[in-house]
Measured scan of single mutants.
Amino acid sequence: MQAFVKTLTGKTITLEVEPSDTIENVKAKIQDKEGIPPDQQRLIFAGKQLEDGRTLSDYNIQKESTLHLVLR
């Protein structure tokens, strides 16, 4: 499924993900596309910070959801 990641600069990245993907996995995909190390990434969805060990389905993130990427 497709999900979108919006950065603070307003850029939107499109990712191909599965509901079973972990947040860690998603961060690795963002690193592949953008070169941002996962340890600098914080992903926010519905106002919550997403934890590495959880999956997209844990957070009820469905296709075409938009996550927000904040860098630390």
Rank of each mutant, 00 (worst) to 15 (best):
E64H: 11
I13P: 00
V17T: 03
Q62Y: 11
G35E: 03
R54A: 08
L50N: 00
K27T: 02
T14R: 10
E64S: 10
L56V: 07
V5P: 01
T14A: 09
N25I: 14
L67F: 09
K6V: 14
V17W: 03
L8F: 13
L56D: 01
I36M: 05
R42A: 11
R42D: 11
T22F: 08
T9F: 13
L71M: 09
E34R: 05
R54Y: 13
G35I: 02
L56C: 02
G10W: 04
Y59E: 03
F45K: 03
S57H: 10
Q62P: 12
T12F: 10
K48D: 06
F4E: 04
L69T: 01
E18D: 11
F4V: 09
L67K: 01
I23Q: 01
D39Q: 12
Q31N: 10
D32R: 12
K27S: 01
P19G: 08
E34V: 15
E51S: 08
H68W: 15
M1N: 04
T9I: 07
D32M: 13
I36P: 04
T12I: 15
G53F: 11
V17K: 00
K29M: 13
G47Y: 04
L69C: 02
E51F: 07
P37R: 08
A28V: 12
D52T: 06
S57V: 07
I36D: 02
Y59K: 01
I61E: 03
S20Q: 11
K11P: 04
V17F: 05
V5C: 04
K63W: 10
P19D: 06
E51D: 09
L50I: 04
V70I: 13
N25D: 12
E24K: 13
T22C: 04
E24P: 02
S57M: 11
N25C: 11
S57A: 14
R42F: 13
K6Y: 08
D21G: 03
H68E: 10
D32I: 13
G35Q: 05
V17A: 03
K33V: 12
I44H: 11
G53N: 11
V70M: 11
E16N: 12
Q62A: 11
I44S: 10
L15K: 00
L56W: 04
E18I: 11
Q62R: 10
D52W: 03
K33R: 10
S65E: 09
E64I: 05
Y59L: 05
Q31G: 07
P37Q: 06
T7R: 06
Q41L: 06
L69A: 02
I44N: 05
L50W: 02
I23V: 10
P38V: 15
T55L: 08
A28M: 14
P37T: 06
I30P: 01
V17M: 04
L71T: 10
K27G: 01
I61S: 03
G47N: 06
T22G: 03
I61V: 08
F4T: 08
Q31W: 15
G10P: 02
T12N: 05
Q62K: 12
T55W: 03
K29S: 04
L15A: 01
K63R: 12
P37S: 08
S65P: 07
L69Q: 02
I44T: 08
Q2F: 13
P38S: 14
K48P: 01
T22L: 11
I30D: 00
P37A: 09
V5H: 01
Y59A: 02
F4Y: 14
Q2V: 15
S57E: 12
L50R: 00
R72V: 15
D52I: 05
G53H: 15
T55C: 06
L69P: 00
V17C: 06
K48C: 09
E34H: 08
Q49K: 09
T9P: 04
I44A: 05
D52A: 07
L15Y: 01
D21R: 01
Q62D: 10
T12S: 06
P19C: 06
E64R: 07
M1Y: 12
R42K: 12
Q49D: 15
Q41P: 01
Q31P: 01
T7V: 08
T66W: 08
R54G: 05
R54Q: 09
R54F: 14
N25V: 14
S65T: 09
S57Y: 09
I30T: 01
E24S: 13
R42T: 15
L15D: 00
L50V: 04
L43V: 04
K11S: 08
A46F: 09
T14M: 12
L67I: 12
L43G: 00
F4S: 06
G10F: 03
V26D: 00
I23T: 05
N60M: 09
L15V: 09
T7M: 15
N25L: 13
M1S: 04
G53V: 06
I30V: 05
K48S: 08
K6R: 10
Q40K: 12
V17Q: 00
E24T: 08
P37K: 07
K6T: 12
V70C: 09
L15T: 01
Q40V: 11
K11A: 08
L56I: 09
T55G: 02
S65G: 07
N60P: 04
E64Q: 10
T12H: 05
K48N: 10
G10M: 03
T66I: 14
L69S: 01
T55K: 11
Q2S: 10
T12K: 06
G10Q: 04
M1V: 06
G35Y: 03
F45R: 03
Y59W: 02
L71Q: 08
Q49C: 13
V70P: 01
D58G: 03
E64W: 11
T7H: 05
N25W: 09
V5F: 05
E34C: 13
R54W: 11
S65N: 09
G47I: 01
T55P: 05
G10A: 03
L67W: 03
D32V: 13
Q31F: 15
K6C: 11
E18W: 13
R72C: 11
T9E: 13
K6I: 14
V5K: 00
T9A: 12
E24C: 08
S20H: 11
L50Y: 01
D58W: 11
M1R: 04
E18V: 13
D32S: 12
E18R: 14
D21F: 07
K27Q: 02
D39A: 13
K33M: 11
K27Y: 04
K33S: 11
G10N: 05
A28W: 11
A46W: 09
I61K: 03
I30H: 00
L8Q: 14
D58C: 03
K29D: 02
K48F: 11
A28C: 09
T14W: 08
A46L: 12
E16Y: 13
K33Y: 09
F45T: 02
V5Y: 02
S57N: 10
V26C: 03
N60Q: 09
T66A: 06
D58R: 02
T22M: 07
T55V: 06
L71Y: 08
S57L: 11
R42W: 11
T14G: 05
R42M: 15
D39I: 10
Q62E: 11
K27F: 03
N60I: 06
T9M: 10
A28K: 15
A46V: 06
L43R: 00
A28R: 15
H68Q: 10
G10Y: 03
S57I: 09
L50E: 01
A3N: 03
S20F: 12
E64V: 05
L69D: 01
Q49W: 15
K29G: 02
A46P: 01
K27C: 02
T55M: 10
G35L: 04
Q2T: 15
I61W: 06
E51G: 04
E34N: 10
G53T: 10
L15Q: 00
N60W: 05
L69F: 04
L15M: 05
Q49F: 14
Q62H: 12
T12P: 03
T22W: 05
I13C: 02
F45S: 03
Q41M: 14
Q41H: 04
L67Q: 02
